[in-house]
């Protein structure tokens, strides 16, 4: 087991290096820092001095890969854009954003609001979706099942932005139940988070219910379920004691991969509701074309994804003793 974890962790390193090289190529080779400077400063009336100053402020004035002018071998490789901007990320040193703030500190501060929104959405969502799917599976092959699936497909076809805008209009503007947007720490946060959480759960209801329903139906047709019914167990007992337990394996293992992403928050929900989490941070960075922040978020995102994959593989062994990792 420990050997497996170590091996998987080692396997993650080349992937992170790959991501790093890829983003480096995308941000510094496809368009040179000069291009970026010109775009930021506006295309017209831009002097070479202004470009040089812009690059110097951000540390983009160094050579890309190899600094032949620097003294000593370590400086030759170390005093370059690649080392300063890319290698440093491996120790979570992201440098400064365009507004001069330290990206690492910003990320730390914004993780909590993101988590405060994403965690309830995740937990409540899982419970609600499983309940609905179980209900639909209980009434399988009836009209309730049919129309339930139709409803799921219809809900899947609605843009997530509709749920947000519609929810804000209905609950905040018409009924004045909660504030439209904003955020506060502590107990007050519940007031601000209620609506985004509800919308987050409803927004993914269709897709999740339909997926979980197929999990349940797959189990329901198995031999051990037939045996349980043949013993004379009631349908409810069969469903809760046998089917639910076994269908939880795919549901939970599927959900585990999402856990690390809870830190990342969700882009549009956060920015619509003005929650100062990582999602809105990313959206703001994309809109203001802050390349340093986008690069850092790409790195963090891939890191969390790899952690998620590792957790998923481990969770298989925990919930299903038949699977052994070699």
């Amino acid at each position: 087991m420990i050997a497996y974890i170590v091996r998987r962790t080692l396997y993650a390193i080349p992937i992170l290096i790959g991501v790093n090289l890829f983003t480096f190529a995308l941000f510094f080779w496809v368009n040179t820092p000069d291009d970026m400077a010109r775009m930021h400063l506006g295309l017209k009336r831009v002097t070479p001095e202004a470009i040089a100053k812009w690059k110097q402020e951000r540390g983009y004035d160094k050579p890309l890969l190899f600094n032949s002018g620097a003294p000593g071998a370590t400086e030759k490789l170390g005093d370059t854009i690649f080392f300063e901007k890319s290698i440093r990320m491996f120790v979570f040193d992201f440098g400064a954003a365009d507004d001069g703030r330290d990206i690492g500190r910003e990320i730390k501060a914004r993780m909590l609001p993101s988590l405060a929104l994403a965690l309830p959405v995740f937990v409540v969502g899982l419970l609600v979706h499983i309940t609905f799917a179980l209900l639909v599976a209980f009434f399988r092959a009836t009209y309730i099942d049919f129309w339930g699936v139709v409803l799921c497909v219809a809900m899947m076809s609605i843009s997530s932005m509709f749920y947000i805008i519609g929810g804000q209009y209905l609950i905040s503007k018409l009924w004045h139940l909660v504030p439209i947007s904003g955020f506060q720490g502590g107990v007050d946060s519940a007031k601000f988070l209620a609506l985004p959480v509800i919308i987050g759960v409803i927004g993914s209801l269709g897709a999740a219910t339909r997926l979980y329903r197929t999990f349940f139906l797959e189990e329901i047709n198995k031999d051990y379920v037939r045996t349980a019914r043949a013993k004379g167990l009631s349908e409810v007992t069969v469903l809760f004691k046998h089917v639910l337990k076994n269908a939880m394996i795919p549901i939970l293992t599927g959900a585990v991969v999402a856990i690390p992403f809870l830190f990342m928050g969700s882009l549009i929900t956060e920015s619509f509701f003005g929650i100062p989490g990582l999602g809105s941070y990313t959206v703001d960075a994309i809109r203001s074309q802050d390349f340093a922040v986008v690069r850092s978020m790409v790195f963090i995102g891939s890191f969390l994804y790899i952690v998620g994959l590792l957790l998923t593989d481990l969770s298989y062994t925990l919930v299903d003793p038949r699977i052994r990792l070699g």
Binding site: I15, G18, V19, F22, T23, L26, F27, V30, N31, D35, M36, R38, M39, L43, F261, M264, L267, T282, I286, Q289, F291, V294, R295, M297, V298, G301, S302, Y305, I306, L309
Partner: peptide, 26 residues
């Protein structure tokens, strides 16, 4: 594909589109 897959989709798209925009503008 594991490497490409590990970059969150929206961020990869954002990074690439920003770069395209720079290219179009220049």
């Amino acid at each position: 594909y594991t490497t490409l897959n590990s970059i969150p989709g929206v961020l990869l798209i954002a990074a690439a589109v920003l770069m395209t925009q720079v290219y179009i503008d220049t």
